[in-house]
Write a protein that binds this DNA or RNA. Structure first.
Lengths: 338, 338
DNA sequence: CTGAAAGCGCTTACAG
DNA sequence: CTGAAAGCGCTTACAG
């Protein structure tokens, strides 16, 4: 049985009030007394019981992080950034993932069990009305990653994907004027995909182009799916001198490898760009030109916002937008513009 | 303010004892009464306060996972496996990382705060005496990943690295008899590196070979370090018809890319094998021959063991060993043996 | 500067 | 089958 505050009090010959005081507001107690109490604490290896404490203080010092799923490097970077900042600020991190078919009930159960976490960070890539509803009912501070929950008060850390996608496509257009650009996205309902697709359409519209139906393709963000799909179409693309704009690096890598398997040269025969700047983008040959997305920073910033709100519940909602930047490597030749 | 058990009791016109009963041992209460209470619970959106509950029950349903750091796909797979199993079993997962220079104090603080977690899973790649000591003092069930904490009672999930390394090296030796095998490890103190190096030495000794000093190299597990190092030595290795046995896939990928940059062909001019079977091993060209290490399964199995112990504290310690297997791809030509 | 006491929201014998 | 009461280990006014 772990030592309780009473054991400490007895050993130090004081009341539990005094022990509690040296724990929480040390300066309110006489130095002599404090020393005695501290000695007793050390000797007993006493640690306050988090439950009793939480019951009074109504805080656990645990922060929740809910991610869509836990696959891939993408999310692990968020966790990494969040985890580091969490410790830095003296909190704990509770991680949970939520599957796409979650009915929304789980989202809260995952992390929001009454009192378990003081606040939570959520990332939703597919928005269902159920999920929205449970988030609206959350009674703890909320930080939303790269999205928005209408009707729920929350802070936000977003990434300027749109600008990144737009800049990239614009440079593609001006570097290879008149050439086709094929868009390879994830599912049609995926928010990032929607955003990137909009940027793509917008820039093409600016130069008077309306992409052909077969140039907008929805896959599932996975390497293997992209590889298989590209295997079918890669020679057609190369014949047209097209550029493939994949909505993530994984799919871009799949296209690169499919092209190489078809004995095409990149970027000479076919140009490919990715998105996210995950490590894969440096492991393909040639390396991927892509858009850097600061995932770890997003995780860290979200924790920061959450803690700031915890300390100051009434501050106005804030929305931090983290910039992206185009990283030019080899898979797309030289790009004009900046 | 969230509804309390008292609010529910009042609304359902019963005592809090009865509400508590329908929450915990539903069959002890009259169906009619139960219905009424359940209605009140639903109406109020009542959720028991975890702190009050934990204070009585002495359990939080939170499981801790402490990893050496949170870099790379390697660890993210453990988290993934653990996270999934955790939810499956109705628990929550608290993730924490510990830096190499941790004084050990942190290990417990990270996750072991009195009562916060019911049990914890730890992975230590560098063992300091401080860390060992704090783990020995842990008062909650412990599962150790791929290691051993002497003097502390714990369950273990290990991976049969040694066998994997031995099998791989043995097949290397019999496929390319008389050729040099260069070992590229992580830091000398890294437990996995030590293990893999031992396997390497053992197999070579079996065929009467004592590796030359320059054939045992300690780097740091990183792609870029391996790339730089290999750039210096790759032509010498190729001239000798050597095989490079890297202790992880990242370093193997670095060697592959350095060789290709030096216009060498793999596996014709130089053979390379990796370890771990992370996704990188399928993204290099040629793809890496490597040893599959079931990380997600390790995470899941650890959670399973932890929960079993929670339910049955006195069971004898168990040690589960997960098998590895050699995955032959292209970076090392055909391998004889099986 | 310190102690006695109330109270946080639950669970669980103990009576009835 | 149900309720009154004790108790889990803390924090914090309130007196002194």
């Amino acid at each position: 049985m772990a030592a309780s505050i009473e054991d400490v009090a007895k050993k130090a010959n004081v009341s539990i009030s005094t022990v509690s005081r040296v724990l929480n507001r040390r300066n309110l107690v006489n130095v002599e007394t404090r020393k005695r109490v501290e000695a007793a604490i050390a000797e007993l290896g006493y640690r306050p019981n988090v439950f009793a404490r939480g019951l009074m203080l109504r805080k656990s010092n645990v922060l929740g992080l809910v991610l869509p799923d836990l696959h891939g490097e993408f999310y692990s970077e968020i966790i990494r950034g969040a985890n580091q900042k969490t410790r830095e600020l003296g909190y704990h991190l509770l991680v949970s993932s939520v599957t796409a078919d979650d009915d929304g009930q789980d989202v809260l159960a995952a992390v929001g069990t009454q009192g378990l976490v003081d606040g939570m960070i959520v990332m939703v890539t597919e928005m269902s009305s159920m999920i929205r509803k449970s988030l609206q009912n959350a009674s703890i501070p909320l930080v939303v990653l790269d999205g928005d929950i209408q009707g729920a008060k929350h802070d936000t850390v977003a990434i300027d994907h749109h600008n990144g996608a737009e800049t990239l496509v614009r440079r593609l257009v001006s570097s290879y004027p008149g050439k086709r650009i094929v868009f390879l996205g994830g599912h049609e309902t995926n928010l990032d995909t929607i955003d990137r697709l909009n940027a793509y359409r917008k820039v093409l519209a600016e130069v008077g182009v309306r992409p052909a139906a077969e140039d907008v393709v929805h896959l599932d963000y996975r390497y293997s799916t992209a590889f298989e799909y590209a295997t079918e179409r890669v020679s057609e693309w190369a014949a047209a001198g097209a550029t493939v704009f994949a909505a993530n690096d994984e799919m871009a890598a799949g296209v690169v490898d499919a092209a190489i398997a078809a004995t095409l040269s990149i970027p000479e025969d076919l140009r490919v760009v990715g998105f996210d700047d995950t490590r894969i983008s440096q492991l393909t040959r040639p390396r991927l030109t892509t858009v850097h997305v600061p995932m770890a920073e997003m995780g860290a910033k979200a924790i920061e916002l959450l803690c700031e709100r915890l300390n100051e519940p009434e501050r106005p909602s804030s929305r931090v937008i983290l910039p992206t930047r185009v990283v030019v490597r080899e898979s797309c030749g030289t790009l004009s513009g900046s």
